Simulated assay, not measured.
Amino acid sequence: MVMDRLPKSLYTPTYARFLAELKNARIAAGLTQIEAAARLGRPQSFISKCESGERRIDVAEFLVFCRAFGIDPCEIIRAVEARSSFKTGSSISLGRRGGKNLRRDAGSIHAGQEVFSDSLTS
């Protein structure tokens, strides 16, 4: 089964919330960008680029960031999910296939369906 191409999640509201939560975690840990960068063995500009969305953070890096900030990664994921537009009982767009708009009940996201972003429309 061929799925429509996923948009770059870098430009979704969910990814923006993820970055905001990660930045909040750094600040809550009492770390400046310089101090966080030192813990990660990277320059301050690396932290700045990640927090601004100029540089994408992958899952492995996310886990290292959380360790450096002394926070459970699940806390950030829960915070992002709590503020996201895909809540149980609502539906999200899964894009288009064959001229039809595809939608799925957002409750299925929590059941582990293959949904990766809350803005998958073409």
Rank of each mutant, 00 (worst) to 15 (best):
I47V: 12
A79D: 04
P73M: 14
F65K: 02
C74R: 15
D72M: 03
V64A: 10
L63P: 04
A68T: 05
E35Q: 07
R83E: 03
Q44I: 01
P43F: 13
C74V: 14
R83L: 07
S48T: 11
G53W: 00
C74N: 15
G70V: 06
A38H: 10
G30F: 02
A82N: 14
F86N: 00
S52T: 12
K49Q: 15
C66V: 08
G30S: 02
C66L: 07
E54N: 15
F46L: 11
G30Q: 03
I57S: 09
K49L: 14
R56W: 13
V59A: 09
G30A: 02
Q44M: 09
F62N: 05
G53V: 00
R56S: 14
A38F: 08
T32P: 01
V59G: 05
V64R: 06
S85C: 12
A37S: 10
G41N: 10
E51D: 13
G70P: 07
C66T: 06
F65N: 00
G41W: 06
Q44G: 04
F62C: 07
G70Q: 10
F65D: 00
V64G: 02
D72S: 04
C66Q: 09
I71K: 06
R78C: 10
E35V: 02
F86Y: 07
F46N: 09
G70I: 03
R83V: 03
C74L: 15
K49D: 15
E51Y: 03
E75W: 08
